[in-house]
Simulated scan of single mutants.
Amino acid sequence: MPGLDPGIHPFDPSGMKGGFVYILTNRPNGTLYVGVTSDIIRRVWEHREGVADSFTARYGLKSLVHVERFDEITTAIQREKTLKHWSRDWKIALIIKDNPTWRDLYDEITQ
């Protein structure tokens, strides 16, 4: 789509100035949650500990299966809004493209 070309970068914990779009799930092909944050480690920890919003706590969404980093938080917010309008099948295809086994990426981002 014109104007929605996100500046997506591989995850780099040292580049925390921008924003992150992430997807959580409770199991492969399970319930999905798309979120945005400027501090991915803190935010995913909050979801895992059940101190984040009630939707993720209610459905046990603790597994981080997709992360995108952006230089600007405004770009991350736009990407989150875009992903939230995608169909479930498109979101699953996005996850499978980079994470076909649906492994939890939380340990990778905290190292």
Rank of each mutant, 00 (worst) to 15 (best):
Q78E: 12
L94N: 05
I40N: 00
K17F: 08
T101G: 02
E68L: 00
R48S: 10
I96T: 14
A52K: 05
V44C: 02
D12V: 12
H9D: 12
A93D: 13
Q78M: 13
A57L: 09
A76V: 10
H9L: 15
G30Y: 01
K91N: 11
I95M: 02
D39S: 12
E72M: 14
K81R: 11
I96F: 06
P13A: 13
L64E: 01
V65P: 04
F11G: 00
E72H: 12
G18P: 02
Q78F: 03
V67C: 09
Y33K: 11
K62A: 07
V34W: 05
I95K: 02
T74D: 12
T82D: 07
G7A: 09
A93Y: 08
D12N: 15
T82H: 11
N29M: 13
G50Q: 07
I77T: 11
K17V: 06
K17Q: 15
S54R: 14
F70E: 01
D12E: 14
I23T: 04
I73E: 06
W45C: 13
S38W: 11
E46I: 06
E49D: 14
P100Q: 11
I40R: 00
S87H: 04
K81S: 15
H9V: 09
A93F: 08
N99G: 08
Y22V: 02
V44T: 03
Q78R: 13
Y59G: 00
I77Y: 03
M16S: 11
S14Q: 14
I8C: 11
I23C: 00
R69C: 01
G60P: 00
Y59S: 07
G7K: 11
A93L: 11
M16P: 02
K91D: 01
E49P: 01
H9I: 10
K17A: 12
A76C: 12
V44R: 04
G18I: 05
K97M: 09
S54N: 10
P28Q: 09
R27P: 01
N99K: 05
G50T: 10
I8D: 10
L61V: 09
R79D: 10
N26D: 15
F55S: 05
V51T: 15
I77C: 04
K84I: 15
I77Q: 12
R88V: 09
P10T: 13
D89I: 05
R79Q: 14
D12K: 11
S14M: 07
D89S: 15
G50D: 06
M16W: 10
D71Y: 08
P100D: 13
E49H: 13
V21A: 02
D98K: 10
I40V: 13
D53L: 08
